[in-house]
Design a protein around this nucleic acid. Structure first.
Length: 859
DNA sequence: GACTCAACTTAGCAGGAAGGAA
DNA sequence: TTCCTTCCTGCTAAGTTGAGTC
C-alpha cells in the first residue's frame, strides 16, 4: 500500500493531478527534526491514545502549562465588556495601544502581515502600524499592505497558496489584476472603442430581454407568500409549521427480470429474479472505478453470494473471480442506447409521466401554501457507493419497504395510501421537524429523510438564518480573534489547543472534524487531525496533508503565526507519534460549547460561511472592472468565486477531455485570427493607399506561423471537398426520390476542380502575401467583418481563460452553500449584470429571498 | 461527561437537458 | 437538422450540530 488514496480512485486521481502540476509538493523542504515526514499511506488508525503530556512547555516558551488542565472548563468568555475588549486590544505591545488589533478593520489583516507587524512592533515598541481609525475596510491597516496590497483580507490559506509550494491557485489580486489588465490590453488591441460600445449596447439589449424573460418565468412560478418580508427577529423557530399535507413518497417500481444470463466459470447461468437484480447492480458498474475496487468487490460478493445461496443457484456461486457480468453490462448499454434513441412521442410520454409524479409527490401544502418537495423518491436498491476508502463500499442497499417508512404530517391531513398490500411504518405529527418522511437504511444504519426542496420557505428561512449568523460574526470577529490569539499562550493545554484549533478553523476554513468510527472512511477535520497530517518547517510554515470530507485531499502549506507554530510543535512532541491526535484534549462539542459562549449561534462552521462570504465580497469588489463588458465582469465574478472555492478546498476531477477541449478552443481563436488576417489583406488590395493611414493592417497576427496557415488551409480545402461530396450525394438522392435524372459525376468533378483552383490561389496568397478581393467585397464590409472577428476572438479568449482556471476547482458548492446570495444580487444590480448569468433557475428559486436587496447591500 | 442518534447542511458526481455550431 | 459540448439537476454520501440518555 503506497498511499492512503490508493483504492480511492478520485482522491488518487486528484493527488496525481496535484503532483503532476506541482512536483515539489512532496515533503522535500520540511524540517527533518522531530516532525517526521510520515507518508500518509503508512497510517493505521489506532484506538485514540490520549497522549500523556507533562504539560511542560515548549523549550522556547517562558510560561508553563498547568498540569491539571485536561478537560478543564473553558474560561467563560461571553462577549466581553468594553473594558475587557479593551484589555484584548491592549494585549498588543504597541505603546499606542492600537497596534495589533484595531477596531473593525483589524479582522481584515492577514495573519502573516499581522505577524510581521507584530514583530516590527516588538522591535519598535512605539511604531504605529496604522494611521487610520479602521472604519473603512479598504483603508484599514495600510502598513500591512506594503508586502502586497492585494490580499490583505485574504484568509491564510489563500495567501499561502501564492507564497509556498502548494498546489492551489494563487489568489492574490495582484495576479488577477494582471490577468484583467492583460485581457483589457488585448481587448484594446483587438476591439476599438466603437465596437466596444456597440457590443456593450447589444449585450445590454440582449440582457434586458433575457432578464424580462427570466422575470416573467419567475413571476409565474413565484410563491405568492414572500415569507422573507414578514421575518420577525428572535421569533421562536422551533415550530416549523401549523399544517402539513402531502401524498407520501414514491417507491421505485418492483424489479422486472430481463433474463440476461451472467456467466459463471465461463458458462451462462440462470438466476432467480432477486439474484439477477443484485448481479445487475454490479454489471451496471462494470469497468467503473467502483467495480475495480477490491473492497467494493469483496463487500458486493459477500452480499451477492448470500442471496445466491438463499435462492440455490446452480452451480453454487462461491468465487467472485469466476463471475462474469459482461453480458449484463452489454445489455444495459443497449438499453441505454435505446433510451437515447427514443422517439419524440416516447420522450414526451416519459416527460408526462415524470410531471405526473412531480405533481403527485413533488408538491405538498405547508401552512396552506403549495411547496415543492425535494427527494420524494425512496432510494432504490443498489450497491452502496461509499467514497474514498469506505470499508462498506459495495454492500447491498436493500429495497425499502413502506413498513420501514414513517410519515410526518398534520393531524388533520389525510394519511396517504400505502402501496397495495403494505402499510406505513408509522405516522407522526411532529411540527418541530421539517421532514415529510423518514426511514433507516441498512448499510450504515443511517436515517434518511424526505425534505422540502431547496427553494421552499423552510429551507429559505434556514439559509437566511445561516447567513445572518455569519454576518453577526463579522461584527464580533475582531475581539473573538483577539481572544483566541491571547489564548494561544494560555497555561492550560486544553485552552491552548482550543485556541490553536480556532485559529486553524478561522484562518484556513477547516471543518470542525468530529471523531469517526471504524466502519467509516478515515477522513479528518481540524479537531481530528493527527500527528502525521501536519509537518512543520522553520521558521513558521505548516504543511497540511490529509483527507477531508468525501476523501478529498487537503494539501496546503501555510505560513502561520509564530505562536501557532510553537503550539503545533508542542502538540506534536514526544511521546506523540503517528496515529495520535494532534488536539488530544479537544473535542468538537467542547469547541462549539465555547463558541456558543462567545456569540449566540456561533459554531465552527459559521467561520467557514463568514470567511467565504467575506472573501467573496472583498475579492468581487477588487476584481470587477468598472467599465468592463458583461463578459469581463463575469470573469471577475467567477474568479472571486474561485478564490472562495480554493479557500474551502472544493475540488473536482479534471474532466477527461479537458486538454482536448482547450486545444480546440485555441484552434478556434487561431482560425478567427486567420480570417481577420485575410480581411485585412483584402482591404489593402481594395485600397492600397490605406497602408500608410492604417498601419495596423500590415501587422502580422500573433500565433499564426506559416506552417500552421498551410496546414489550416489544407484542412479547409479538405473539409470543403467533403462538404461538396456530401451535398452532391444528398442532392442526387433527392432527385432519385423525385424521379429526376441524377447529376452526372462530371459535375462533381468540376466542383472539386474549383476547390483545387481555390487551393492554388491560397498557396499563391501565402507566397505573395496579397489577397485579392472576393466578389462584392468593399472596405466597409471588410471592416465590419474585422469587428465581428475581434469580438469573437475576445469572447473565445475569455472562455479559454475561465475554463483553464476552473478545471480543478468546483465553484458550485461555495456558490450554493457558503456565499451569501445577497452579495451576488447586489453586485448584479450595481454592475448591470443579469442575474441569470450567475444563478441558474433553480438557484434563483432557492435564493429568491435574497433577490430584493439594493445595489448597496453589504455582507 | 461520554456516548448515541436525529436532523439538518454540505458535497461531488452521473446523466440528461439544453444550447450552440456546423 | 444533427451532432457535440456544456450546463444543470437530481441523487445520495458525508459532514456538523445539538439534544437526549445513561
Amino acid at each position: 500500500m503506497s498511499s492512503d488514496s490508493e483504492d480511492m480512485p478520485l482522491a488518487k486521481r486528484k493527488e496525481q493531478q496535484q503532483r503532476a502540476n506541482n512536483p515539489s509538493t512532496d515533503d522535500d523542504n520540511l524540517d527533518s527534526g522531530s516532525d517526521s515526514d510520515t507518508p500518509l499511506g503508512k497510517r493505521k488508525r489506532p484506538a485514540v491514545r490520549k497522549r500523556v503530556l507533562d504539560d511542560e512547555d515548549d523549550d522556547d516558551e517562558a510560561d508553563t502549562l498547568s498540569s491539571s488542565d485536561s478537560g478543564a472548563p473553558a474560561v467563560k468568555r461571553t462577549r466581553p465588556s468594553v473594558a475587557t475588549r479593551k484589555s484584548y486590544k491592549d494585549d498588543s505591545s504597541d505603546s499606542d495601544g492600537e497596534g495589533d488589533y484595531r477596531g473593525s478593520s483589524d479582522s481584515d489583516v492577514p495573519l502573516a502581515k499581522k505577524k510581521s507587524a507584530d514583530s516590527k512592533a516588538k522591535t519598535n515598541g512605539s511604531a504605529k502600524t496604522n494611521g487610520t481609525n479602521g472604519t473603512s475596510r479598504t483603508k484599514a491597516a495600510p502598513k500591512y499592505k506594503e508586502e502586497s496590497s492585494s490580499d490583505s483580507d485574504a484568509p491564510l490559506a489563500k495567501k499561502a497558496a501564492s507564497k509556498t509550494k502548494i498546489k492551489t491557485e494563487p489568489v492574490s489580486s495582484s495576479k488577477s489584476k494582471q490577468g484583467t489588465t492583460t485581457i483589457k490590453k488585448r481587448g484594446k488591441e483587438e476591439v476599438d472603442d466603437k465596437s466596444k460600445v456597440k457590443k456593450v449596447k447589444k449585450e445590454e439589449a440582449d440582457d434586458k430581454s433575457k432578464v424580462k424573460k427570466a422575470k416573467k418565468e419567475e413571476d409565474e412560478d413565484e410563491d405568492a407568500d414572500a415569507w422573507w418580508l414578514n421575518q420577525k427577529e428572535n421569533e421562536d423557530d422551533s415550530v416549523k409549521w401549523t399544517s402539513l399535507k402531502h401524498n407520501g413518497v414514491y417507491f421505485p417500481p418492483e424489479y422486472v427480470p430481463h433474463g440476461v444470463k451472467m456467466k459463471y466459470d465461463g458458462k451462462p447461468i440462470t438466476l432467480a429474479p432477486a439474484v439477477e437484480e443484485v448481479a445487475g447492480f454490479f454489471g451496471a458498474l462494470l469497468f467503473t472505478e467502483h467495480a475495480e475496487n477490491p473492497t467494493f468487490q469483496e463487500n458486493f460478493f459477500k452480499d451477492f453470494s448470500k442471496i445466491a445461496k438463499a435462492h440455490k443457484t446452480s452451480p453454487e456461486i462461491t468465487s467472485f473471480k469466476k463471475c462474469d457480468f459482461t453480458p449484463m453490462y452489454e445489455y444495459f448499454q443497449v438499453e441505454k442506447e435505446k433510451r437515447k434513441n427514443m422517439t419524440k412521442e416516447q420522450k414526451e410520454a416519459a416527460k408526462q409521466e415524470k410531471l405526473a409524479l412531480d405533481e403527485m409527490y413533488g408538491t405538498c401544502y405547508l401552512d396552506g401554501r403549495k411547496e415543492k418537495v425535494g427527494n420524494y423518491r425512496i432510494e432504490p436498491p443498489s450497491l452502496f457507493r461509499g467514497r474514498g476508502k469506505h470499508p462498506k463500499t459495495g454492500c447491498l442497499k436493500l429495497r425499502v419497504q413502506p413498513e420501514q417508512v414513517t410519515l410526518n404530517l398534520s393531524k388533520d391531513a389525510p394519511i396517504p395510501k400505502a402501496p397495495a398490500g403494505h402499510k406505513w411504518g408509522a405516522i407522526v405529527h411532529d411540527d418541530t421537524k421539517t421532514w415529510l418522511a423518514t426511514w433507516k437504511e441498512n448499510v450504515n444504519d443511517s436515517t434518511k429523510y424526505v425534505f422540502l426542496a431547496a427553494g421552499s420557505s423552510l429551507k429559505g428561512q434556514s439559509d437566511l438564518k445561516k447567513f445572518e449568523t455569519a454576518r453577526a460574526l463579522k461584527k464580533e470577529i475582531d475581539w473573538i480573534r483577539r481572544g483566541y490569539m491571547a489564548d494561544l499562550k494560555d497555561k492550560k493545554m486544553f485552552i491552548r489547543q482550543r485556541a490553536t484549533a480556532m485559529y486553524l478553523i478561522d484562518r484556513l476554513a477547516l471543518r470542525a472534524g468530529n471523531e469517526k468510527g471504524e466502519d467509516e472512511a478515515d477522513t479528518v477535520g481540524c479537531c481530528s487531525l493527527r500527528y502525521e497530517h501536519v509537518t512543520l518547517e522553520k521558521p513558521n510554515i505548516m504543511h497540511l496533508d490529509f483527507l477531508g470530507k468525501d476523501s478529498i485531499r487537503y494539501q496546503k502549506s501555510v505560513e502561520v503565526d509564530e505562536q501557532v507554530f510553537k503550539n503545533i510543535r508542542l502538540f506534536k512532541r514526544e511521546p506523540a507519534q503517528e496515529g495520535d491526535d494532534l488536539f488530544d484534549r479537544l473535542k468538537t462539542s467542547e469547541l462549539n460549547k465555547h463558541l456558543q459562549n462567545l456569540m449566540k449561534g456561533l459554531t465552527a462552521k459559521v467561520f467557514r460561511t463568514y470567511n467565504a462570504s467575506f472573501t467573496f465580497q472583498d475579492q468581487l469588489e477588487k476584481k470587477t472592472p468598472k467599465d468592463g463588458t458583461v463578459a469581463e465582469k463575469l470573469l471577475a465574478y467567477n474568479r472571486a468565486n474561485r478564490d472562495v472555492a480554493i479557500l474551502c478546498n472544493h475540488q473536482r476531477a479534471v474532466s477527461k477531455g479537458h486538454a482536448g477541449q482547450i486545444g480546440k478552443i485555441e484552434d478556434k481563436v487561431r482560425a478567427y485570427k486567420y480570417q481577420r488576417m485575410k480581411q485585412k489583406k483584402m482591404i489593402l488590395s481594395l485600397e492600397p493607399k490605406l497602408k500608410k493611414k492604417r498601419p495596423e493592417l500590415l501587422e502580422p497576427e500573433s500565433d499564426l506561423e506559416d506552417d500552421w496557415i498551410e496546414e489550416h488551409e489544407t484542412q479547409l480545402m479538405e473539409k470543403e471537398r467533403e462538404r461538396i461530396k456530401a451535398k452532391f450525394e444528398k442532392d442526387n438522392l433527392k432527385r432519385k426520390e423525385n424521379k429526376e435524372k441524377p447529376m452526372p459525376a462530371s459535375e462533381l468533378k468540376d466542383l472539386l476542380k474549383e476547390v483545387d483552383v481555390r487551393a492554388k490561389e491560397l498557396a499563391k496568397e501565402r507566397k505573395t502575401g496579397v489577397v485579392p478581393p472576393t466578389r462584392g467585397a468593399t472596405v466597409e464590409k471588410c471592416n465590419a467583418q474585422i469587428l465581428k472577428l475581434d469580438e469573437r476572438i475576445a469572447a473565445t479568449r475569455l472562455t479559454l481563460t475561465d475554463k483553464e482556471e476552473n478545471k480543478q476547482t468546483a465553484l458550485g458548492t461555495s456558490k450554493i452553500n457558503y456565499i451569501d446570495p445577497r452579495i451576488s444580487a447586489a453586485w448584479c444590480e450595481k454592475h448591470k449584470v443579469p442575474l441569470d448569468k450567475i444563478f441558474t433557475k433553480t438557484l434563483r428559486d432557492k435564493f429568491k429571498w435574497a433577490m430584493t436587496v439594493d445595489e448597496n447591500w453589504e455582507f
